[in-house]
Amino acid sequence: MLAESYHDWWSLAGVDALVGEAPAGWLDVPAANDTAAKSRIAPIAAPEPAPLPAALQRQEAPIEAGAKGPVALPGAWDEFQSWLASNPDVPGSQWDARRVLPVGNAGAPLMLLTAWPEIDDQRDGALFTGPAGQLLDAMLGAVGATRGDCYLASLAITRPPGGRIDERDAAELDRLLWHHLRLAKPGRLLLIGGDIVRMAAKLQLADARGKLLDINQDGGKLETVAVAHPAILLARPAQKAAAWDSLKLFNRGR
């Protein structure tokens, strides 16, 4: 019975002889019994392998465009303002089609400079809008100024994704920063927000509290202080004391 069981198992597996005259492919699909039909059956083409996912396909090496030189910055005030409004090569204009442009004139008693528009500013197309703008107006009133007396600008005229920039953009904006200040010729400078303080004064905002910052412009020292952005002050009222410690430096000698 055991031998019959083995025999039956091998028979079911397709083994019908211990030794054959020709090699047999036991795993091959059996052909039709009709030998004439066999000759009429077209061979089954092997299926084409599925293409590799795009991530695994060989990628052609990108052709790098020639490196651009530094962007030419207009040297006249009116040309510079028109350039900011429309030129596609303006550093910091690449992140949004809507540009938030400066407001005011060269030689203003006070220049307000932030790194880039806030989300609400980008939406509204103007700097320091909404409740943050109302708080800024109150801050200016505390030092005897109004928005109409000031030149308001952001270094980048659009907001970068996530409010962060890479080293290449930072280098271009650094050139733009000092050129902008040179043309604006403000009497005093108020840096608004930690990003512009790091770029212009190479300091953290907390280290600028209550200090006149060392900003040199064309060989002269530009009286400068730094405060947190009004939107931050609204969210964190405890920081208003630090902002006042810096703003009151503008009242000295008045």
Rank of each mutant, 00 (worst) to 15 (best):
Asp78Gln: 14
Leu249Phe: 05
Lys248Glu: 10
Trp26His: 11
Ala37Ser: 06
Arg236Glu: 15
Glu118Asn: 12
Asp218Ile: 01
Ala231Lys: 09
Ala45Phe: 03
Gly104Leu: 00
Ala241Tyr: 10
Val197Met: 00
Leu176Asp: 02
Lys185His: 07
Asp34Leu: 10
Gly141Ile: 00
Gly220Trp: 13
Val90Cys: 12
Gln81Asn: 07
Asp124Lys: 10
Pro131Met: 03
Ala61Ile: 06
Val90Arg: 15
Ala184Tyr: 00
Leu189Ala: 02
Pro43Trp: 08
Arg168Cys: 05
Pro23Cys: 07
Gly104Asn: 14
Asp78Ile: 11
Leu110Cys: 08
Ala97Asp: 15
Gln94Trp: 04
Lys202Asn: 11
Leu152Val: 06
Asp16Ile: 09
Val90Lys: 14
Ile63Gln: 14
Val15Lys: 09
Ala37Leu: 14
Asp166Met: 03
Asp214Asn: 11
Ala31Glu: 05
Glu79Arg: 14
Ser39Phe: 04
Trp95Cys: 12
Ala228Pro: 07
Leu2Ala: 12
Pro23Lys: 11
Leu113Trp: 00
Ser82Tyr: 11
Ile215Lys: 01
Leu84Glu: 01
Pro88Phe: 04
Ala106Trp: 05
Leu73Met: 15
Pro30Glu: 02
Thr158Ile: 05
His179Phe: 01
Gly220Ser: 13
Gln204Cys: 02
Thr35Pro: 03
Leu140Gln: 01
Asp28Lys: 11
Tyr151Val: 05
Ala46Lys: 06
Leu135His: 04
Glu223Arg: 13
Pro131Arg: 08
Leu113Gly: 06
Ile165Asp: 03
Gly75Val: 09
Leu205Met: 12
Pro53Asn: 03
Arg252Gly: 04
Leu191Thr: 00
Pro91Ala: 08
Gly66Arg: 14
Arg236Asp: 08
Asp121Arg: 06
Gln57Trp: 00
Leu222Cys: 02
Arg147Leu: 03
Pro62Tyr: 13
Pro88Asn: 10
Gln217Lys: 08
Pro53Leu: 02
Lys68Phe: 01
Trp77Glu: 14
Tyr151Phe: 14
Asp34Phe: 04
Pro88Cys: 06
Thr146Cys: 07
Pro70Gln: 08
Ala106Gly: 08
Ala37Glu: 10
Trp26Asn: 07
Leu140Phe: 02
Met199Leu: 15
Asp214Met: 07
His180Asn: 09
Leu127Ser: 05
His180Arg: 11
Leu110Val: 12
Pro102Leu: 03
Ala24Ser: 08
Ala37Phe: 09
Ala171Ile: 11
Leu173Asn: 07
His180Tyr: 14
Glu118Tyr: 05
Asn33Gln: 14
Ala138Lys: 13
Lys185Ile: 08
Gln81Ile: 15
Ala45Arg: 06
Lys240Arg: 13
Leu18Ser: 09
Arg182Tyr: 02
Ile192Ser: 01
Thr224Cys: 12
